[in-house]
Amino acid sequence: MNDYRILVVEDELTIAALLCEGLSKWGFDAQYTTDFEHVLATVARENPHLVLLDISLPFYNGYYWCGEIRKVSKVPIVFISSRTENMDIVLAMNMGGDDFITKPFELEIVVAKVQAVLRRAYDYQPESSHIAFCGAVLNLGEAAVYYGGEKIELTRNEFKILQTLLEHKGGVVAREELMQKLWDSDSFVDDNTLTVNVNRLRKKLEAAGLADCIETKKGLGYRIDD
């Protein structure tokens, strides 16, 4: 967990919970509020590093709260809304917003924009406990892959294979190197055992919608391109 706090101000609580869950998987301290009448007080109390702010809210809209926050704070504000008209985006930026995300959204896009805004504001550097590939994310701490909002559990060997391939993303990893990683040997393990493990990993990724991520280079080894 890093020290960056994200406050989600989103009327649709299912979406708010999804955002917090997704951001937490990336190491952020993310929480949402249900007190839409006192958003400014919540921001002052929680002192977040970034606010994800919907436009359509009860009592007062996101434009209003952005203006109120800007009177007392320079905290980065990223609007998130189903409104897609250019004037909505222009108004959000003019009110002091730092970026704008339209619904429906991919969680990976939200994370990327949050990280970009944090980098500009605080010289933030993402933690290295996650590796992105093929639109998915390998969580090194959990030994699991997240894709399309789903968690894909990996066995020890599947995790080591995927981690090794991603550490050499774009390059070919020799079968001997993978065997050394898995069993600390490339001499006393049946070569077919590695093939079985790679195929199991492939099938698990394909079942989740991640087909053709792992490429076989005949006579050489395996590779993953992004």
Score class of each variant (00 low, 15 high):
G96H: 01
C134T: 02
E176F: 02
I101A: 12
A121F: 00
G171S: 06
L91A: 13
M93K: 12
L166R: 01
T155N: 12
D88T: 06
V90H: 06
Q115C: 06
F159Y: 15
I101R: 12
I101M: 10
A143L: 07
E153R: 05
V90Y: 07
P126D: 07
D123E: 15
P126L: 00
N139T: 06
D123R: 14
V90E: 10
Q115K: 12
Q115Y: 06
G149R: 12
L162Y: 05
Q125E: 09
K151N: 09
E177W: 08
N94W: 03
M87H: 10
C134V: 00
M87A: 11
S128E: 12
H168F: 13
E153W: 04
G170F: 08
L118M: 02
P104V: 08
L140E: 09
L178H: 05
E108D: 07
V114S: 05
G149M: 08
I101L: 14
T155W: 10
G170P: 02
L162A: 05
E158N: 08
L154A: 04
H130W: 10
N157L: 14
L138P: 07
M95A: 14
V117F: 01
E177L: 15
A112Q: 15
D123F: 13
S128M: 06
M95E: 14
C134W: 03
F159H: 07
V173Q: 00
L166E: 01
I152M: 00
Y124W: 13
